[in-house]
């Protein structure tokens, strides 16, 4: 049985976008805070801390997850993916980023990492979604700037690009 005292700070190791990282966390430290302030990966944003706005959505072992609703100590050993890992190896935009860029699918950009991380899992599960399916999948992410229309268009474009890529590599 692993027992962590409230006053202690404990080593948490994980991989962040494939790279091993580690830091220390009190038991109560939220994963979002751990990523941003312990690891220094500030691309993941915190918007509500009660699981509704979706700004802090990341992937934990492949699953899109609210980083404000998980404790850092719970993900010791997990594979974490964040917005910082969406670019191509050469640093150019990946398909999601490119589609968001071309569609004006962001304005202030604060919610955008959460949208893209939700989509990155959703488009794996459903590579050829309808606009309505995208809207339902994104209903757990709030954006106050764009009115979502361009985000949905970007999602459709990204799905197309990802399908093209999948057919090329297979």
């Amino acid at each position: 049985m692993k027992t962590l005292d409230r006053h202690g700070r404990f080593l948490v190791r994980l991989t962040l976008n494939g790279i091993p990282e580690e830091g220390f966390a009190e038991p109560r430290m939220l994963l979002a805070d751990f990523l941003r302030h312990e690891i220094g990966a500030t691309g993941t944003h915190v918007g509500c801390e009660h699981g509704i706005c979706g700004a802090c959505t990341i992937r934990v072992d492949g699953k899109a997850t609210r980083a404000c609703l998980v404790l850092a100590v719970q993900v010791d050993g997990a594979a974490i993916e964040t917005v910082e890992g969406l670019s191509e190896p050469d640093g150019s935009f990946g398909p999601l980023q490119q589609a968001f860029h071309e569609n004006f699918a962001l304005q202030c950009g604060f919610c955008t990492p959460g949208f893209m991380m939700s989509l990155s899992e959703f488009l794996e599960i459903n590579p050829d979604p309808t606009a309505n399916e995208i809207k339902v999948a994104l209903s757990g992410n709030i954006c106050r700037c764009t009115g979502y229309h361009e985000i949905v268009n970007a999602s459709l474009d990204a799905a197309k690009a990802l399908r093209r890529r999948a057919s090329q590599t297979s």
Binding site: M1, R6, E26, P27, R28, L30, E49, H50, L71, V73
Partner: peptide, 11 residues
């Protein structure tokens, strides 16, 4: 809006 302290147990 952060949790109050608690001990954490993973049985």
């Amino acid at each position: 809006m952060k949790p109050a302290p608690f001990d954490y147990v993973q049985p």
